[in-house]
Design a protein around this nucleic acid. Sequence first.
DNA 1: TATGAATGAGCGTTCATTCAT
DNA 2: TATGAATGAACGCTCATTCAT
Lengths: 191, 191, 191, 191
Amino acid sequence: MKEERKRSEIMQSALKLIAEKGFIGAPMAMVAEKANVGIGTIYHYFKDKNTLINKLYMELEGKLIKFLEGNYNEGDSVRERFLQLYRGVLSYFTDHPLEFRYMEQYFNSPYSIDLRRDRIFDDSREGTILKKLFLEGVEQKFIKDLPLVVLFALSFGPILLLLRDQILGFVTLNDTLIEKTIEACLDSIKR
Amino acid sequence: MKEERKRSEIMQSALKLIAEKGFIGAPMAMVAEKANVGIGTIYHYFKDKNTLINKLYMELEGKLIKFLEGNYNEGDSVRERFLQLYRGVLSYFTDHPLEFRYMEQYFNSPYSIDLRRDRIFDDSREGTILKKLFLEGVEQKFIKDLPLVVLFALSFGPILLLLRDQILGFVTLNDTLIEKTIEACLDSIKR
Amino acid sequence: MKEERKRSEIMQSALKLIAEKGFIGAPMAMVAEKANVGIGTIYHYFKDKNTLINKLYMELEGKLIKFLEGNYNEGDSVRERFLQLYRGVLSYFTDHPLEFRYMEQYFNSPYSIDLRRDRIFDDSREGTILKKLFLEGVEQKFIKDLPLVVLFALSFGPILLLLRDQILGFVTLNDTLIEKTIEACLDSIKR
Amino acid sequence: MKEERKRSEIMQSALKLIAEKGFIGAPMAMVAEKANVGIGTIYHYFKDKNTLINKLYMELEGKLIKFLEGNYNEGDSVRERFLQLYRGVLSYFTDHPLEFRYMEQYFNSPYSIDLRRDRIFDDSREGTILKKLFLEGVEQKFIKDLPLVVLFALSFGPILLLLRDQILGFVTLNDTLIEKTIEACLDSIKR
DNA sequence: TATGAATGAGCGTTCATTCAT
DNA sequence: TATGAATGAACGCTCATTCAT
């Protein structure tokens, strides 16, 4: 119990520091301090900084996927499922800005070398869902017949950019704006 | 003359190293070595590493804008001008992958703190052009009536993501694919 | 009983690790792991690492002396007793290479500060035996009249060097070679 | 000029500290301090601690060999040449106790892994001289017909042990004692 | 008695920056 | 102007030791 608490506090501390100041701005000593833990303690739970960073990423990714799956209803129309995914990503990261900043930095760093975003279409559950949704849409002639990477970029490129702007304080997205935006995303992949 | 050459070689060296290995992978000593210049010399041209990084970014941005302006024809239709801009960004960064990697890293780092992307709509020439184009499109009822940031995200979000994938080797974009993609981008902002 | 087993396994573990990897290559955690014992347990049996190392040395020394005494026959001639001691040391360490490596490292480290080799002539049983043998040989005009340290160095210097070479794999000593070698050692102290 | 002085002071500092306190007792910060040099400076001259230690060893070995060669006269009889070598080693290390302690520790550590004492018979000048001397002695039926390693051990084992005792203060060797000792060493390899 | 999570001083090393030449 | 030797703060990480269970 207690041990899991320490592990979790270390991860929280790392999440905050790295999200706010980047990997360099988050020395292990500072992570330890913010977690109210001795430096050595971190090394009981994580082999080294690299491992901490990767484990943290994987945990955050897991949480995101769980959330998206919770909102995803196989019975809905393709259109509705797309809108639901877009809405989900936007609302999840709006509620979890640190996680957005962290994941963004993670992808933009050598840490993600073995775990590139092309994973998005790998055989993980998340990858499968998205891939199947795209293929189903293409088959129904609802979605343009373009490569998956292109469809992905059209779908999520704008959303990721907007989330960034929102988290940095350049926009505030209200509900009607969000609906208009995700409709626009759909417009770009719709036939 | 000669002095300008040194300055330029330092910047080239920094560009390559940082684009390929990130800011951490580019210590000043290595930048100097790759530029065939003494370490101290860098500090004659740039106050410190921070300054070098910022100056380099500004230079790269300037080159990009110049290129885009060269391809931009005020006489063209709004539609054509959008397509031209999209095409321009895609082709410029396809030809200059190091610059793409550099700028991407720059935005994703504490170095860009004072120079946020909201500059895109500031009073620089580039900002003005893009802003005017969006406003003109909205006025003509050709473009959706959405905030500029949203329109920007819809326009360039997909393109930036695709460029990344292409540079990392996950896709290869041929001309017809490019045309389809930029049409799709236009679809998302078109009424 | 069981407690003694733990103590003994800790010592075995320390012996192996230190003999093979040196004092630095044998952290307490590793000693504990190899002994299938909790880290804390070591500290029940030994005050600290220093104590463990010293106790281990003393135990190994005791075993060696016991072995040498077993082969030592007061009734033999001085000459025979010398040869028997030389033979004993060679055969004991050939059969116990880890113990040789351990003791060698021990003497060559700050750990042995309080327990220098001059002990060899102290009032321990071993010291007494060797001292008496040298003195008896000198008195019988069989051994050169030299200081005890010198006689000791002449006797055992070559043997220790050879053992080292053998354990490291540079020589293999067979029985005839051993006999020739110990005769040569005797030649150096013989009148 | 000045640069070479710093390099040399770093080596002197390392020599003293390591000889007196061992490799662990000589942290880089202490080496730097004793050399009146910044920590970073050490790393200009030596890639890392390992390299410093190895370079230092090689330098000390070079000095020793030079000294021994200076005292070695090809025209002398085999007997005289042996005595001269023994005398040389004894007097060199008596005058340079730190170097003795350093080299002793070096051989007894993982640092010497790639540079084992079997080098003594390799094709370095030193190795060649000693090897030739042994072979010549054997051929002249002056020296026992034993493997080189054994002859080496008989010759230098006692001397190294005695030097150790002397440096630690357990004996003081005067000239007559030295002469008797090296004669005894010769006795062990003489036919 | 036995455990191992927790600790933090201390290590080797890096690197942006300075300054005498 | 150009250099690179010199610096030391700061980093990631190790490990002997403690102590609550």
